[in-house]
């Protein structure tokens, strides 16, 4: 793929998504779309480490929550402006990523061990956030309502949507750039066969630590967006398992190790989730919690069993079959 078309496809997707709000004024739909973008950004972060690097994290909530709490605490406790807090909060998330990565990868943890240790770190942070005064403890923390672009709060949901879309486009361009750079090749080499990569002179440890740091930064940015959208956080939201699970499910179902996989996965997952909730709700005459997640679990198993490269891999295979059938 030439440079222009590699980055052009990302920009085309962003432009396509950018015109969506023109077609709708519905706040319900916009809320849903913003949430979808936030999950897409978090999932894009997971994809860099899990999809390209092959290191499956079960605890990306650690980065998401640090970004979100960083945003809230810097504004409410340190009196910082929201836009000044943003880079610091992202850097804090990246620092947590670098810390966990340095410890886990130096101890040569991989596979399930790595998944477990990330999960444990996220749980430690969740318990701490639930008791420490700086995070507001169990009561959570509110970001003051100051509807003003200067404070990263928008009266028009569409503006927030476009800002979130800007975040997503930035994250996707970063992943695309990494994919095309030498660093991306090293990362994929580590995923495919770490020992072979090391034998070829790749510094696997440095590559993995760099990957988890960048991955954490992207997912922390999603946390920042979440904080500014909902203006309220508690430990179960910011560091809860839900975001670790969704950040992992979206890329795996959409297509791990592809630029657009996480976005496609987030659209499919959240879209299907809303549809099932509405359908079951109609059927039983009331909201039933958890049905969307049951569906996600089924999709995950089906994907692992029948579509190892997710939906994107499935589409690719269909195209190959179609070409073969024509000839």
């Amino acid at each position: 793929m030439s440079g222009a078309s590699a980055y052009g496809s990302v920009l085309a997707l962003a432009a396509g998504l950018g015109v969506l709000p023109v077609a709708t004024e519905s706040n319900v739909l916009l809320n849903f779309l913003v949430f979808m973008l936030i999950v897409s950004v978090a999932a894009t972060g997971w994809n860099l480490l899990g999809g390209y690097g092959g290191q499956f994290s079960f605890g990306h909530a650690a980065f998401f929550g640090t970004g979100a709490y960083g945003m809230a605490i810097l504004q409410e406790r340190a009196g910082l402006n929201a836009w000044a807090a943003l880079p610091i909060a992202i850097a804090l998330g990246a620092a947590v990523g670098a810390f966990i990565g340095a410890l886990a990868f130096r101890a040569r943890l991989r596979g399930s061990y790595f998944a477990l240790v990330t999960l444990a770190f996220a749980e430690v942070l969740r318990i701490l956030a639930n008791v420490l005064p700086i995070t507001g403890g169990a009561a959570g923390i509110l970001i003051r309502l100051r509807v003003d672009p200067w404070h990263f709060q928008f009266a028009d949901q569409r503006v927030l949507y476009w800002v979130a879309l800007g975040f997503l486009a930035g994250a996707l361009l970063l992943v695309r750039a990494i994919e095309r750079a030498r660093f991306g090749a090293w990362l994929v080499a580590v995923r495919e066969n770490e020992d072979a990569a090391r034998a070829l002179g790749v510094d696997a440890l440095a590559v993995k630590i760099a990957a988890i740091t960048l991955s954490a930064a992207i997912t922390a940015a999603a946390g920042c967006l979440y904080a500014q959208k909902f203006l309220y956080l508690d430990a179960a939201i910011a560091y809860g398992p839900w975001i670790s699970v969704e950040a992992l499910l979206a890329p795996v179902i959409g297509g791990a190790g592809t630029v657009f996989g996480p976005v496609l996965g987030a659209v499919v997952l959240l879209g299907l989730g809303e549809l099932t909730k509405a359908w079951i709700g109609d059927l039983t005459g009331g909201a039933v919690p958890g049905v969307d997640l049951v569906l996600f679990g089924v999709l995950l198993i089906l994907c692992v069993a029948f579509a190892p490269r997710g939906i994107i891999g499935l589409l690719f295979r269909l195209r190959v079959w179609a070409r073969w059938a024509r000839s």
Binding site: F58, G111, V245, V291, L293, V294, G297, V298, L300, I301
Partner: peptide, 15 residues
């Protein structure tokens, strides 16, 4: 790893 995670999600949320 992913399948047992999927099973966990299904069982927990079905309950």
């Amino acid at each position: 790893l992913l399948i047992t995670l999927g099973l966990a999600i299904i069982i927990e949320n079905a309950l």
